[in-house]
């Protein structure tokens, strides 16, 4: 039996992450975001990170005190982000990321969302590059290689391999076979397949090997290296309904 993939704490699971790592974070609008791993990495303190994610925060439904990439940014741990959003979508909105970006303290690569997903998929599929119609004719394509297929112009995009993937899943067995629930899947399996080392925060108790029918596995355990069961709130971070957020924030402040 090889070494267990189950780690006792988030701190243990991220302890060896070196400065300068490229890390992909799953999640879309709070759902499937590795909230507990963000917190652990902010405490661990690795610097010079390149962070790949759809955006730099969790969207409007994220509890205001929940850990996101913003914790890493405020902690001066982030060198560069690769995202499909590097500015707020409304003039009234303010991003922590923007403060640092506008001062030149962080670098950013802005990528259309489908291209971001496909760059990860390509890395996980052994494909070094691909052509896509997205962003052709825009500022993002200026000075870059394009090619015409069947009369249509496409833009060359390269795979985006990761050192680490931080993801969140609904169910896992001890081998690391994962299931996601509803829109939780989003970028999570793609980040894992693009990464050398995948670390998962798991919502339900980790099941014995074989407890998930092979037909129902969304991400095979060969892509998963470390898992931590998320403790119940308030110790662990969970998305909450608005009415529950207020109560939890009060509990956390009292802690």
């Amino acid at each position: 039996m090889s070494k267990s993939k189950i780690y006792p704490s988030f701190a243990d699971a991220v302890a060896d992450i070196p400065d300068g790592s490229t890390i992909g974070f799953g999640g879309f609008a709070v759902v499937g975001m590795p909230i507990n791993l963000y917190e652990a990495l902010s405490k661990q303190g690795a610097k010079g990170l390149t962070c790949v994610s759809n955006g730099t925060r969790g969207g409007s439904t994220m509890p205001s005190d929940a850990p996101t990439m913003e914790w890493l940014i405020r902690n001066d741990q982030v060198k560069k982000v690769i995202c499909s959003f590097t500015a707020p979508t409304r003039a009234s909105q303010k991003l922590v990321f923007s403060e640092y970006y506008e001062k030149g303290l962080i670098d950013a690569e802005l990528v259309p969302q489908g291209t971001l997903a496909e760059r990860m998929r390509a890395a996980g599929a052994g494909i070094p590059a691909f052509y896509t119609p997205a962003a052709v004719g825009t500022e993002l394509a200026e000075g870059r290689e394009t090619r015409v297929f069947n009369g249509r112009e496409y833009l060359l995009e390269e795979a985006l391999p990761l050192d680490y993937a931080f993801i969140r899943a609904y169910q896992a067995d001890a081998f690391g076979n994962l299931r996601f629930r509803r829109s939780q899947r989003n970028f999570n399996p793609l980040m894992a397949m693009a990464a050398r080392v995948t670390i998962v925060e798991v919502e339900e108790d980790i099941l014995p090997v074989g407890a998930i029918d092979p037909d129902d596995v969304h991400l095979p355990g060969i892509f998963v290296h470390r898992m931590v069961k998320i403790p119940p709130p308030p110790e662990g971070w969970w998305p909450q309904r608005p009415a529950e957020i207020a109560k939890l924030e009060a509990d956390r402040n009292a802690r």
């Binding site: 499909s84 500015a87 979508t89 259309p112 291209t115 896509t132």
Partner: peptide, 11 residues
């Protein structure tokens, strides 16, 4: 604006 919010719009 510095940066932008593309999301899925270009695809």
């Amino acid at each position: 604006q510095k940066g932008g919010g593309i999301g899925g719009a270009m695809d």
